[in-house]
């Protein structure tokens, strides 16, 4: 277990270092998320009444599409010079590669959210401070499930010919339940304030996270190793 954590840390720090130098995930994802929330802001006639209702859906659409764009990059880096083969030649457990990629993607998405959400609150005139803690929980758990599944699908699609096209085609249908639960829970916080709604969806999100993180951790070695 100690070796697994050490290897995960080494790969994660390497990913953070390369990302800070290239800014491919952060730069592209931020711009895309910003564009989505700005365009929706102009596209819908927002009023104080309908704004909270629409906001949760728009917020999760922005993170879903921009996050999908970002995770496709996480394995592209490993395809340059076939570094992924270099990783699999080392005695590192394949799970460490998955965990590091998952944590890196999760961290980068959280950074994007920290930058986007204040802009979103101002644009959509929302009051989320009342439930700030609960909002943070739902965002984190939504991101967790998204990246648990997204990292696995990105690893599958990176070896395919039309990878840019296939990643969203494979990933988005699988994420539909998570996005429905997350948008519903977010809406419960900023719109109705119905805590029963919030907690029932939170439980479903936790179940999604546990299932897909466990399954992805177990399946990853079969995806990364050539048959």
């Amino acid at each position: 277990m100690r070796e697994l954590i050490t290897s995960t840390k080494a790969i994660l720090f390497k990913d953070i270092k390369t990302e800070l130098r290239s800014r491919e995930f952060l730069g592209n994802t931020f711009m895309f998320a910003l564009l989505v929330i700005v365009i929706f802001n102009f596209a819908f006639k927002l009023t104080p009444e309908n704004s909270p209702e629409l906001a949760s859906g728009i917020l999760w659409i922005a993170f879903l599409f921009s996050g999908t764009l970002g995770i496709s990059r996480s394995f592209q880096v490993e395809k340059e010079n076939e570094c992924i083969q270099g990783l699999t030649l080392t005695p590192v457990d394949r799970t460490a590669i998955y965990w590091a990629k998952f944590l890196g993607n999760l961290l980068f998405l959280i950074v994007i959210q920290v930058l986007i959400i204040p802009i979103f609150i101002v644009l959509y005139n929302l009051n989320v401070m009342e439930h700030f803690g609960l909002m943070t929980i739902i965002l984190f758990l939504g991101d967790f499930g998204f990246m648990a599944l997204g990292t696995l699908i990105a690893a599958i699609s990176v070896n395919l010919k039309a990878k840019e096209l296939l990643l969203p085609v494979l990933l988005l249908p699988l994420l539909v339940p998570l996005i429905i639960f997350a948008a519903g829970a977010t809406s419960a916080l900023i719109d109705s304030g119905n805590m029963d709604d919030y907690y029932s969806r939170l439980k479903l999100i936790i179940a999604f996270d546990v299932v897909f993180f466990t399954v992805s951790s177990l399946l990853f070695e079969y995806i990364v190793d050539e048959p």
Binding site: A10, K17, T18, R21, L89
Partner: peptide, 26 residues
């Protein structure tokens, strides 16, 4: 293994590349 591909990360320095792999090999 030395292959047709270098297995090196373009965004890391020569020293960082070797240190990274050395760390993975323990």
């Amino acid at each position: 293994v030395i292959s047709h591909n270098s297995f090196l990360y373009n965004q890391l320095t020569a020293h960082e590349n070797l240190s990274f792999y050395a760390e993975l090999y323990g």
